[in-house]
Design a protein around this nucleic acid. Structure first.
Lengths: 201, 201
DNA sequence: CCCAATCTGTAATTTCAATTACAAAAAGCA
DNA sequence: TGCTTTTTGTAATTGAAATTACAGATTGGG
C-alpha cells in the first residue's frame, strides 16, 4: 500500500542541507530554532515531525557534513601517494573547508560544539569521538608511509598524528579570527616542517 | 569624608578571582549567573551592584586572567634569551595553563568565546584583538631573534608568528579533548620543528 | 538618636528560545 | 462520498536564564 496522509510539503534532504549550513556557520548552541526553520523554509511543527529535535538534527547535519564537505580531506589523506604529500593535501583541503564556512569560518567538527553546557555533554562527546577518529586515520596513514618507505621508521607516529590533528583545529580557529587563504596556506607550509624534519632525522 | 552606607559584605577581588575561574572553566556563554553567584558566594543584587553585568564581569575576568594566569607565557616569550628557546618556553607555559584550567581545559583567551551569538559579537571582537596582540608579540620576539642572530634573516616572521599563535589555540582544543601533559609536550616538540627547520635553511 | 546612603536577601519580573496543542488541509482507501 | 492518516500554519506553552523590585539591615554624619 502507498503512503497515507497528506504528503510532506518540502524536501527533507534539501532542508537538512540548509540546516547543516546554519549549524556549520554558527555552531550548535548559538544556532536557534528560528534560524533553522527560517533557512529550511518550514514551520516548527514540520521541523519536529521530520527531525525530532534540535539535537537530532545536529547529529544528522554532522553526518552529511562528513560525507559531503568533510570527505575531501580524508580522501586526500588516504589516496595521495606519498605520505608527506598526503598530509599536506589533507591540510590544504582543510584550509579550503575552513574558508568555505558560510559564516564565521572553520571546520564544523572542530568548532561546532566548544564550551557547551552540561546538558550537551553527550553531544560534545560525540564530536570528540569524531575528532579522535581523525587522529586514528592520520596515524594509520603515517604508519602506511613508514611501511612504504616514505618516512623513516623511527618517527613518532602517535605524536605526529596528534600534532596534525591539532593543526587542523588550530587552522579553524585562525579562520574564525579572519585569517586569509594565503595566511592559512603559509601556516600549513610551516606546519609541514615537522615532517620535513622527521624525514631528515 | 569616609564611605557612607552599609559596607560591602564580600571581597570584590576574591569574588572576581572566583568568577574568572568559572569563566575560564566553562566559557562565557555556557556560564550562567547562577554558577557565578554561587562560586562568588553572593546574591544577584550584590553581583549587579558590584560588577554591572555578566559581560562587564567577563571583561574584568579576562583582564585579571591576563595579568595573573596568562602573564607567564608572555614573560617566557620576552625574557628567555635565545629566540627558539623563548618560543618553546612560551608553548610549554601554554601547556601548563591549558592543563590547569579548572574545568574542561584550554586557554581562556583562546576558547572563552567561540561560536557566539550576534549579540556578543563585540565581546568576541575584544577577545580576537587580544589574540592578535599575542601574534604581534610573537612576531616582535622573532624579529628580535633575527636581529640577535638566533634566527636566519630570511625567515618569514609573519608566517611563523601566525603559526605559533595557531599552535597555542590548537593546544587548547587538544586539552579540551583530553590530551595529557605528555601528549601536549610532544606536540610542542613537534611544532618546534618549524623553527629548527628555519634555522637550518 | 535620627537621617541619608549603601548593601543584602527573597522573590519577582522579563525576555527569549525550544517545544507542543489544535484545528484545518491534503492525500489514500473503502 | 466518508473515513483514516499525516502534514501544515497559527498560536500557545513551557522552561530557563538574566536582570531588577523592594523591604530590611548596616554603616557614617549631624
Amino acid at each position: 500500500m502507498a503512503i497515507r496522509g497528506r504528503p510532506r510539503g518540502f524536501n527533507r534532504d534539501a532542508a537538512l542541507a540548509r540546516a547543516m549550513e546554519v549549524f556549520w556557520a554558527k555552531g550548535y548552541e548559538a544556532t536557534q530554532l528560528a534560524d533553522l526553520v527560517s533557512a529550511m523554509g518550514i514551520n516548527p511543527p514540520s521541523f519536529y515531525a521530520a527531525f525530532g529535535s534540535k539535537e537530532k538534527l545536529f547529529r544528522e547535519a554532522v553526518d552529511i557534513y562528513l560525507t559531503t564537505v568533510g570527505s575531501g580531506t580524508m580522501k586526500m589523506l588516504m589516496e595521495t601517494a606519498n605520505a608527506p604529500e598526503a598530509i599536506r593535501a589533507m591540510l590544504t583541503a582543510s584550509v579550503g573547508i575552513a574558508l568555505s564556512n558560510p559564516g564565521t569560518g572553520g571546520c564544523m567538527v572542530a568548532l561546532g560544539l566548544v564550551n557547551c553546557q552540561l546538558q550537551n555533554a553527550e553531544l560534545r562527546a560525540h564530536m570528540e569521538a569524531l575528532r579522535q577518529a581523525t587522529v586514528a586515520l592520520i596515524k594509520r596513514r603515517l604508519e602506511h608511509g613508514v611501511a612504504a618507505g616514505d618516512l623513516p621508521g623511527a618517527i613518532d607516529v602517535d605524536g605526529l598524528a596528534m600534532y596534525f590533528a591539532m593543526v587542523i583545529q588550530g587552522l579553524s580557529l585562525q579562520a574564525q579570527d579572519g585569517a586569509t587563504r594565503d595566511d592559512l596556506l603559509r601556516i600549513v607550509s610551516t606546519a609541514m616542517a615537522a615532517l620535513e624534519h622527521a624525514r631528515s632525522v
